[in-house]
């Protein structure tokens, strides 16, 4: 019980500290802006640890953070193999194929007004559908290995990407396009020099949305069948064995991989679209 009380006291203290920091004179500085969320996250972790230990919560319901960390360090080779199978093979290859296909389709749509009016409504309709549901079909067609996961990812990222790229390509004003015309620019010159750069913020928005979808697709597809390696496979079998610390370990890996993937895309975005108002500081 004392541990639980300690957790609550700690919560109150650190929260007070955060309130002081946030409303204090130094609240605009970068250190505070980074520190406040870190303190908050740390508070949650410590409270989790103390409450789990204080109330003797069994490990099959909620393992303590230290147990999860111990499990991660013990099972690093397994986790790495799962990461390679699901993320590097399944999610990344599907992401690359899906985004490329969406890009080529978007150019096709862009060149033909008929396709734009026909395919775009269908595309945005499909983008709102629960595409994860196609996973059992694709697993049946492409087998249990990573190819079927990549196929699910391709389907999941294709439509959000398509809608975003097409929206981006129509971002330039008539005036700018007329300017290109007065310079006698060909379609491709106008495309590479004016419309593609103007579309970049939209394209990166799509790439960022898709980066999350790719990982979700690859993991959920493994629930429908996989070789005996992979993050989704490990999660579903560990849940069956009530080895919840292993499940949490996989979730930590998935979270790290997901945010790192997103972060890298965001960094490239900053590098490519440095001219855009949202990137100025």
């Amino acid at each position: 019980m004392t541990l639980v009380a300690a957790a609550l006291v700690l919560w109150a203290l650190l929260w007070l500290l955060n309130v002081r920091l946030a409303n204090g004179s130094a609240s605009g500085t970068r250190a505070v802006q980074l520190g406040v969320p870190l303190i908050f996250g740390l508070t949650l972790l410590v409270m989790w640890e103390l409450i789990v230990r204080g109330l003797n919560v069994p490990g099959v319901i909620l393992p303590a953070p230290t147990e999860i960390v111990a499990r991660i360090s013990r099972e690093t080779p397994t986790l790495w193999a799962d990461f390679r199978q699901t993320f590097l093979k399944g999610a990344l290859s599907g992401y690359a194929i899906g985004c490329t296909a969406a890009f080529l389709t978007a150019i096709l749509i862009d060149r033909s007004d008929f396709l734009r009016r026909g395919l775009l409504p269908v595309g945005s309709f499909v983008a709102a559908l629960p595409i994860v549901g196609t996973a059992p079909i694709l697993v049946m067609w492409y087998g249990f290995d990573w190819q079927s996961k990549a196929a699910v990812v391709v389907l999941m990222v294709f439509f959000p990407m398509l809608v975003n790229i097409v929206a981006g390509l129509s971002e330039t004003t008539q005036m700018q396009r007329d300017q290109m015309k007065t310079w006698a620019a060909s379609y491709w010159q106008g495309f590479w020099k004016l419309r593609l750069p103007a579309a970049m913020p939209f394209i990166f928005n799509g790439l960022k949305i898709s980066s999350t979808l790719a990982l979700i697709g690859a993991i959920v597809a493994e629930f429908f069948g996989s070789p005996i390696v992979g993050m989704g496979f490990r999660i579903s079998t560990s849940v069956g064995q009530l080895a919840l610390d292993m499940v949490w370990a996989e979730i930590v890996v998935a979270a790290l991989a997901g945010s790192a993937f997103y972060g890298i895309v965001a960094l490239i975005e900053r590098w490519v679209t440095f001219w855009h108002p949202s990137q100025r500081r």
Partner: peptide, 8 residues
């Protein structure tokens, strides 16, 4: 939002 929440 960048985390594959469905894994949980």
């Amino acid at each position: 939002q960048t985390i594959p929440i469905l894994a949980i």
